[in-house]
């Protein structure tokens, strides 16, 4: 009989605790309610914002929405490379996946102005408004704004847009990892981990 009592007390106290916790959680949900899906913005913040569409979505935000919604894999962003993939995987709490395509060196679009016919097609194609010019006038690409997405190359009817490798500035040069076996070993392991997982 005594053991029966103990059981009832235990059940009752646990039930009461669960009820209290439930109420607290319900209140907390009301107080700390967040509009929209914060995950989309969080993923979007990790993307390089080239708006290049190489992921198969029309821009960075749509891809972020797809990733946050679980519809897209984390490894589709080409310009972001491995770092971005790892960051997104970490944020989403999923396993990293191998990149489908190696990121190329940062590029820059350049209009050969003497050939430009001023059709404005590239201006309309540029996702970040990095091309200026008016109809029937030469167009110019603002190098500091160009994300190297290549979307302007195809619409050009006279093929006067070149993609150039972005020049490396001595001020932006960064030290690589030391050239010792240990540091290389650590780096290889990280890459392996990212690749196989």
């Amino acid at each position: 009989m005594e053991s029966m009592n103990g059981l009832i007390y235990a059940l009752a106290s646990l039930g009461a605790f669960a009820l209290c916790a439930g109420i607290v959680l319900a209140i907390a949900q009301k107080i700390f309610h967040i509009e929209g899906d914060p995950m989309i913005d969080n993923v979007d913040a990790l993307l390089p914002q080239t708006q290049c569409g190489q992921c198969g979505y029309p821009g960075c935000k749509p891809y972020a929405t797809a990733v946050a919604g679980g519809e897209a894999e984390v490894n589709h962003c080409v310009p972001g490379g491995e770092r971005t993939m790892l960051q997104i995987a970490d944020l989403m709490g999923v396993e990293p996946k191998e990149l489908e395509q190696e990121a190329s060196a940062p590029m820059l679009a350049f209009v050969r102005e003497d050939e430009c016919i001023g059709c404005t097609l590239c201006i309309k194609a540029c996702p970040v408004d990095a091309i200026i010019g008016a109809p029937k006038q030469y167009h110019t690409i603002i190098a500091d704004h160009c994300t190297g997405c290549t979307l302007c190359v195809e619409p050009c009817p006279v093929d006067c847009i070149d993609m150039l490798v972005k020049p490396e500035l001595i001020e932006h040069w960064a030290w690589p990892l030391p050239d010792t076996k240990r540091s290389q070993l650590g780096h290889e392991r990280r890459e392996q981990h990212a690749g196989h997982a």
Partner: peptide, 28 residues
């Protein structure tokens, strides 16, 4: 020191990329 320089370089690089990405996002 080499590791610290590597770390500092990578952080500045990431910061620069972030500033650029933010500007691109706003333009987009």
């Amino acid at each position: 020191v080499h590791y610290f320089r590597y770390g500092k370089g990578q952080i500045s690089l990431a910061r620069r990329e972030q500033v650029f990405a933010e500007a691109s996002r706003q333009r987009s």
